[in-house]
Design a protein around this nucleic acid. Structure first.
Lengths: 345, 345
DNA sequence: GTGAAAGCGCTAACAG
DNA sequence: CTGTTAGCGCTTTCAC
């Protein structure tokens, strides 16, 4: 077959059809074509049909730049997430997408790789690409980012955490409270020697809040603070962290992990080194991703309403864009009691 | 500070500053301001400084729509994927993103939910949002989609499969060949009664090719075709499919699954109904997502180079955009032998 | 080195 | 209901 080439430069380059072309084809004015596309009900049935036929015949698609120029909006929402390779964000973002798509908006995604500076850059780029509004994960970032957004008149919504006092509406849940609940439950099972494997807390309020939740519950109960170890995201990382933790504190009966992926790694490692879970050692996760129910033993974890959160966040930006006042909201989490957490050894 | 000096358009409406405003402030023409911003070296040092001061003073940011209108590009690449909730796409898309971002482009993602019609819509929307190029998953779609893309002069690249004869460059791997390899290996272990749990094959050439690969290897070996059952994507779905398959063909010694998620569900179900994997029944997957190594027994599967594929695809669109001719490429897959596949019972 | 002016493709008054 | 006519903000010849 003919090798596929990029955009032909030079002669014979047939341009993409414009409103003009459609108008000519349908023998009406450009204004009528525009109306057919934007407010079909004010055009007569007959001409509308003719115009739509022409549109289809020419494979016409409106020019984005021109439309954005005059409409002063792009129907595009930007989002900056740490990474898509994390199931937890993927699911939430898909929910955002579904709502946005249904409302005629599109999602412009950017990833920061958990780097605050990269996130700030991404926000600038998003603005430069004409994003009408943005979604940001978590609270931790330079105030200058918010200032920039304010100057650019770009509404923003924070997701994955809820801060009732924030100046920017946030849709999420209380990471700390969820961990308090988990920890209290564990304490009721008699655990007293507790370790925590957390994701990196620098620039990550969700991770920090989760650790804080554990310590809060412990101090409430008059128990010594948990030994905390921080690690990067990943299954192998979770396993390594468990080894490191047990090496220093062999008498732990419970290890609370900041997310399910770390927990899955920790479980695998625990069994690899001959620890019975939960007989000798209990392990818990956070997020309740699909994996949680599949590992052996199945993971006791905190169920987070990914979808509801994504949908609510998308609705929140859209509301902001419509000029409405948005309060932000806290969504409930739920303890998922499975098999990886048992009574203290 | 400085009073608004442009052509006044009405009362007290604080519009975002435009090139005009900057030009007035710096006492030069709009052309000069534009040049200062786009090719600073052709402007004299003195005026350039004056203009840049004005830009800063007014907090000027170029209008995206206007720029896109005249530049005829948006530095945006669109992608339509079935869903982000599938780890396999998430990882590949993240790789695409990384490359694009590094090259100054952004990714506009849309999802089709595995519906060809929704995909066609998404392509139109992407075009309407000014995507300079698009990434599409798999080959199965109406020719009209390609025609549309052609008339819109939007270069496209197919990912997740490789078709050397296609008119559109494709970056992926040979799904059928990978399954042939897997099946041959299984045959060498003595399996003769084989079942297949496949994802929906309608409009999904990857799923179809995988099934075809199995049957090809079987017919090569003179063995009866595998019993095939199709199901939706999901862990529970994989389990249900296994039950259904075994109900009709209780003597199967091997069930080949179209992807790891179905396989994980099948393994869980097999053990739930008292089958020993791989003692009584072997089960294999495809994709090698993180899950594969975690389930018990760990999954024998086909490793797909998600990242390499995503990166190569991103580079391919960019090359097309640069007017280069792109050949497309086939990436290698690898058999990951773990514990879920054993000798025939 | 700089300015004037012609659009890019589309929408939104304003007439008819 | 439909056509005419201004621009939206920016880049880019083409003169000077």
């Amino acid at each position: 077959m003919t090798p596929y080439k990029g955009i032909e430069k030079g002669f014979g380059m047939k341009k993409a059809p414009t409103l003009q072309d459609v108008a000519a084809e349908a023998r009406v004015s450009t204004a009528t074509v525009s109306r057919c596309l934007n407010s079909p009900d004010v055009v007569s049935e007959a001409t509308r049909q003719r115009v739509l036929d022409a549109v289809k015949a020419l494979d016409y698609a409106p020019n984005f730049g021109a439309r954005a120029l005059v409409a002063k909006r792009t129907l595009t929402i930007g989002a900056v997430i740490p990474t898509m390779e994390n199931a937890i964000f993927a699911e939430g973002i898909q929910a955002v997408q579904d709502v946005l798509q249904a409302e005629g908006y599109m999602l412009l995604v950017s990833s920061s790789g958990y780097d605050p500076e990269a996130e700030a850059d991404a926000v600038h780029t998003l603005a430069a690409r004409g994003a009408d509004g943005v979604l940001l994960i978590g609270l931790d970032r330079e105030p200058s980012v918010y200032e920039f957004l304010a100057t650019q008149q770009i509404p923003a919504v924070i997701v994955w955490t809820h801060d009732p006092n924030g100046s920017v509406p946030s849709v999420g849940f209380d990471n700390s409270a969820a961990m308090v609940e988990m920890t209290r439950h564990a304490l009721s099972l008699g655990h007293k020697k507790i370790g925590v494997i957390s994701g990196r807390t620098a620039g990550n309020d969700r991770a920090r809040d989760r650790v804080r939740g554990v310590q809060t519950a412990l101090s409430e109960a008059g128990i010594a603070p948990a030994k905390v170890i921080e690690t990067d995201y990943g299954i192998a990382e979770g396993g390594a962290a468990l080894s490191a933790l047990l090496a220093q504190h062999p008498d732990l009966t419970l290890v609370i992990c900041g997310n399910d992926v770390l927990a899955a790694g920790a479980i695998r490692e625990a069994r690899a080194i001959g620890r019975n879970v939960p007989g000798d050692l209990s392990i818990t996760g956070f997020d309740d991703i699909g994996l949680a129910a599949l590992v052996e033993p199945s993971l006791t974890t905190v169920r987070v309403p990914h979808r509801d959160m994504g949908e609510a966040a998308a609705r929140a930006v859209l509301a902001l864009l419509a000029g409405e006042t948005v309060a932000g909201q806290a969504l409930p989490t739920e303890l998922m009691l499975r098999d990886s957490l048992g009574p203290a050894a």
